[in-house]
Design a protein around this nucleic acid. Structure first.
Lengths: 338, 338
DNA sequence: TTGTACGCGTTATCAC
DNA sequence: GTGATAACGCGTACAA
């Protein structure tokens, strides 16, 4: 029933707990035979040091925490796989929590992980998170933190990003090169840096090519399929259809596509579509969706490496921002048909 | 830098640590004013009790652990959302780990969670896991454990299941009713109970309707899109196409569909397709995929409730197996066209 | 080479 | 109503 402790082993072996401890911690001030004997008996008894007590003592746990807003879309799960890849090799355990896009839950997650004395955290902020004071404190305390994807400009710490601006720009240019003039953007939630950047890329591409647009060309949407559907339905009802749409991500593009098809519109003949953060669906859906692919696992690996570095060089550490590259996968949904 | 502890507060307030502790634990043997004063000062100092020390003492943590094999497919993330729903309300934190379909990682995950003194765990076994001795020990020790989806018949504990046999049977019957005679099954990894059950449902439906089949009608495939592609390509090359396919899950069905389309086959005219554990892709893909839908969130909620019950009634607990219901969503991929 | 004693941050059980 | 102290399980400086 109870976990076997160091005391039980000491009692059994008629020696002190420190000897047991030493056997397990491979210090040199112990006779080899004693050590081997202790280890074998301990194994037999099913003893292993309680990392929790160790953590309490050492104030670190060989665990790292990951907090993501959701994992319904494939993006975050894939990033986490990259993170695990790095940390498992180094003997760290990865604890994952999801904030469910709630600021309160996110904060509770962070505190739980802190309480578990994780040695560092990798975080992507929830939609609701505006106030980042808690993170500022953590950073001030020297607590190792790395952010990715959903970051805050107010925080001076390592970040792993994607060049949303650049790729939104390229994506929009692609639509322009296909000959589309009236182009709309289904934007992400306002206030999110990635939404901003993608929007700015969109705008600047239009400007560069002297394509007119106004505020009605940019519609705040959201990250889910349902968001894309909702916004698209409104456009259809208002009979205000563009020739092409650049959506903030694949799910919103797919939602729009679903609604367009439901109303009998053809893609790309009636409306061309282009997504972002390529998901598996992109090439499976009909018609296949043109999308900007992000190196998800690489984002995870990079964040993990940055955190590891930060943990190991605790103190003398300079925050880095790594910006990773992507690619535009052109498919049928954005082609200009003759 | 350092976390503020109960001692710091005691020092500041010129009182003993026990008084502080009492203030936080709402015991009645403390003056109300003292309590309020302490609480406000403590808050000011940014103190909150360290749950880790508390766990060490109380041998429980108000945390529960979840171990899943993967979260690339949407199934597990959705279940986890259901789990969180229940536990967050009850004030528990949910720690998630993924085994990456590796037995070793799974075991390490379990141990890590144990070491964090989680009060219970919800587990879905990895593909590799054959030996469940560790779980047997845990159960013998009275440790609260609930399994779902990937379970072992050797373990006597609460389980949340889907009636894979029944729904595989229904799904296969649906294909039969559509008039298909030569039907293949893309099966899941052998050794997995869910693979077995789905296969048996398939076989028994064929038998009931006196439809002939042999061992070549059942092809071990896997759970990923790539598995479906691989197997389908082989069938195409061998020129051994059935009229209809019942696949063990949506990704394998979608992989098969991809490969069929790539080779110019029409669905369902040339080959009809039917999946399992409906994913978002099912209704988005072209043609929309007929699939058996599982109540993913409900699976999570149910598992959570069973675990909660088990934690609360520690000792006098009888393992339960809950079997949840689903539905067959019929779409174009399995229709018999005139 | 080994044992003793203290501390990590709490709470519970005593006294007072 | 409040304070001292022992425990939870471990690592380690120090003494032996």
């Amino acid at each position: 029933m109870k976990h076997v402790t160091i005391k039980d082993v000491a009692k059994k072996l008629n020696c002190s707990v420190s000897t047991i401890s030493r056997a397990f911690n491979d210090k040199y001030d112990i006779r080899k035979e004693t050590r081997d004997h202790i280890l074998s008996i301990a194994k037999e008894m099913g003893y292993s040091p309680n990392p929790m007590a160790k953590s309490l003592l050492k104030q670190c746990s060989n665990q790292i925490g990951v907090v993501v807003p959701e994992f319904i879309n494939a993006f975050f799960p894939e990033v986490i796989i990259g993170i695990q890849e790095v940390f498992i090799k180094k003997g760290y355990q990865v604890l994952i929590m999801q904030s469910n896009e709630s600021h309160i839950t996110e904060l509770e997650n962070i505190k739980t992980l802190e309480n578990n004395m994780v040695d560092g955290m990798i975080i992507s902020l929830s939609l609701e998170t505006k106030n980042v004071d808690y993170y500022k404190d953590l950073i001030k305390q020297g607590f190792p933190l790395v952010f990715f994807n959903r970051v805050s400009n107010e925080l001076e710490t390592s970040k792993v990003l994607f060049d949303d601006y650049k790729w939104a720009f390229f994506a929009t240019e692609h639509l322009i090169y296909q000959g589309y003039k009236k182009i709309f953007h289904l934007g992400g939630p306002a206030g999110l840096v990635i939404s901003q950047n993608r929007k700015n890329g969109f705008i600047d591409a239009l400007r560069k090519h002297k394509i007119s647009f106004d505020e009605s060309s940019i519609i705040e949407t959201g990250f889910m399929i349902s968001d894309g559907e909702r916004v698209m339905e409104k456009l259809i009802v208002e009979n205000n259809l563009p020739e092409a749409i650049f959506a903030v991500n694949d799910p919103s593009a797919i939602g729009a596509m679903k609604m367009l098809k439901k109303h009998g519109y053809k893609i790309p003949e009636d409306v061309a579509l282009l997504g972002f953060t390529e998901s598996k669906l992109a090439e499976l859906i009909d018609p296949p969706l043109t999308s900007v692919a992000q190196p998800t696992k690489e984002i995870g690996r990079t964040a993990a490496k940055l955190l590891l570095e930060q943990i190991e060089t605790k103190g003398i550490f300079v925050p880095q921002t790594v910006i990773l590259n992507g690619r535009l996968n052109v498919r049928e949904s954005s082609m200009k048909l003759k």
